[in-house]
Design a protein around this nucleic acid. Structure first.
Lengths: 352, 352
DNA sequence: TCCCGAAGTTCGATTTAAATG
DNA sequence: GCATTTAAATCGAACTTCGGG
């Protein structure tokens, strides 16, 4: 039945050497340089013949290493996650680490339980994708006491024990408004993010900073805020609703800047329902560049977050942290802010 | 430094009992019923005081259990994955299992390497999401020799050692065509799936079966095939391209049935470019109901795969398999075919 | 005999210390 | 001292066995 249970002792018996020697050879440990090539070859042949695979539980028990990284996502259904996860997965693969994926569903209890489970499994690092985050900050403080290298994507903590990878929201929003402005738009409606979402404030700052630089007046009656909601898809519905409200006001606008792509999709839907075509009657710009944006009709002009790259960077910071711990080096948190880029597509056009 | 290394012996010392007793009490093993409540309380208090957490490596080494399930996805960026993964994650969470997520990128070498890594970690079951699968079947035969409970989602193997969860493609395609027909459409263009994709044939069968039942004639010149491609997003571009070709033919059609939602998005784009509005000038129906379908303008009428449910079912089959192994019961593979449902939205309308 | 708890073994690999020639 | 090999201890929990009351 369990013919697949070849231990190091079996290899030892087969090769005629002790398990110590086998271990040294197969791991090419430092001592292996004293061992003659003939012995090595013999042991390797025996191992291959028996199909020996080391038991990782035993190895981990000794070494206290799991070669595993915990990945926590706050809401898996957020399309923002997909590419970030791809980036994480790919980088971990290069380093022979495996990810344990957990989805917090934006629930405090789940966060706590999962954190415990991951720590119990001795994950060597933790990557937290705080994409659509509506839990109290103090929950995140739990992360600090975890004492393993931790990287947050999409959110920065005050503490200097947790690294972060962020998109430069201010820069992105600045570029988005600049794009609309350069196309001749002056009456621009803006749908801002929920106040409690960390991204909202810097994006608004970027908007005001650009507006100021060209003395563009932002009509406060054309500025609306998304409500809070735990569901990332909800910004679609809210975008739809707010745009309808906007249209009811009958204050003219020729372009709309949405908080994110979901919101933009909602806005386009509302405009279409009112008989307004995008971009002919109104230009619309989003933020994020989720996969659907390129597939939309019209395809969505947006600010692209380099999500896959962000995942890659997070892994690299995390594994640096792991190495630092192994070498007992002190390593302080790293904070990277990544520049987004404007992706011009069909949903925006020059004002005629 | 490593104050977080409380062993069962520490608890034994603190409580004044032996590690045996501590183990029995904390695991409420059968023998625990002989142990007086006072002893239990004392031990539990000591454990809590020291913040004892059992070392899972040691436990796994003894029990040969990992409480881990391997999840292999063939292409993570396929929007089809998201909800299935959510379903898997959620069910595993209920059972205190943790998923290790691997993304094969449709590459044979990755598949093999990941399979090895997962088996090395003694995952107790394997769930394979064969969503957009273009590797040789014989690669999948590797799964059989793995000898752990395995469930495939989206593809059925001839073997009876691997369970499967499938959507009823034939039923779905049947319902899709029926929907268009009932709206009065008779000239219906059809974009079929790539020939090597397992879903393609049954969907086509469902189409013909409905057509036959109402004596609807399918014009072969309005039937096109998606090309093969490893990239799931490519069906968007192919859908676009094929629809353009279709329009160039100048053979009239009033409705289009796409292989999947991505293809439908591509088709809508092509129609829009030709000045044809959906659904006013042409109805379009997709298949899958990926998240973006509800957000599209117009929202897409499609055949909904109950993806989250499919993930849940896969987990339940997998864990049944795990229990069977534990109890040394023999358990043969389970094959579930799930009925999809028609989701009527804005992209189809009655022919006037 | 029944209840309770301790001592010792096991899981499989790594590592230290030590033994050969 | 050097090259080569190995016995024995270790990691932490769980289970088997056994002895005392």
């Amino acid at each position: 039945m369990k013919s697949t249970m070849v231990t190091i002792r079996d290899v030892a018996k087969e090769s005629g050497f002790s398990s110590t020697t086998v271990s040294i050879v197969l791991n090419s440990a430092p001592l292996a340089r004293y061992i003659p090539a003939s012995t090595k070859k013999c042991i390797e042949r025996a191992a291959k013949k028996l199909g020996y695979r080391p038991n990782l539980f035993a190895r981990s028990l000794r070494s206290q290493r799991s070669h595993t990284v915990g990945v926590m996502v706050f809401d898996m259904t957020d399309p923002y996650c997909t590419l970030v996860l791809r980036g994480i997965e790919n980088s971990l693969y290069q380093s022979s680490y495996l990810p344990i994926l957990t989805d917090v569903h934006n629930e405090r209890s789940r966060f706590e339980r999962y954190l415990e489970m991951l720590l119990d499994r001795r994950v060597e690092a933790l990557i937290v994708l705080a994409n659509w985050l509506f839990v109290d900050i103090d929950v995140l403080a739990d992360l600090e006491k975890s004492s393993i290298p931790t990287v947050m994507i999409g959110r920065e903590l005050q503490t200097d024990s947790i690294s972060s990878v962020l998109v430069d929201n201010e820069l992105g929003a600045h570029a988005a408004l600049e794009h609309l402005y350069s196309l001749g738009h002056r009456k621009i409606a803006i749908i801002r993010g929920p106040k409690t979402l960390a991204d909202s404030a810097p994006r608004w700052k970027g908007i005001r900073s650009f507006a100021k630089s060209v003395e563009l007046e932002i009509d406060p009656r054309l500025v609306l805020d998304l409500p809070e909601s735990r569901d990332p898809i909800s910004s679609f519905e809210a975008g739809y609703q707010l745009t309808e409200d906007l249209l009811k006001q009958r204050r003219p606008f020729t372009a709309l800047m949405a908080f994110d792509d979901m919101t933009a999709f909602g806005a386009i839907r509302a405009l279409a329902k009112a008989g307004l075509r995008v971009p002919e009657h109104c230009s619309v710009i989003g933020f994020d560049d989720v996969a659907a944006s390129a597939l939309y009709t019209p395809s969505l002009t947006t600010i692209r977050q380099p999500m896959e790259v962000m995942g890659t960077i997070a892994v690299s910071i995390a594994l640096d942290g792991v190495n630092a711990v192994l070498e007992k080096r002190q390593l302080s948190a790293v904070h990277r802010k990544i520049a987004p880029e404007l992706a011009v597509r069909e949903s925006t056009r020059r004002l005629l």
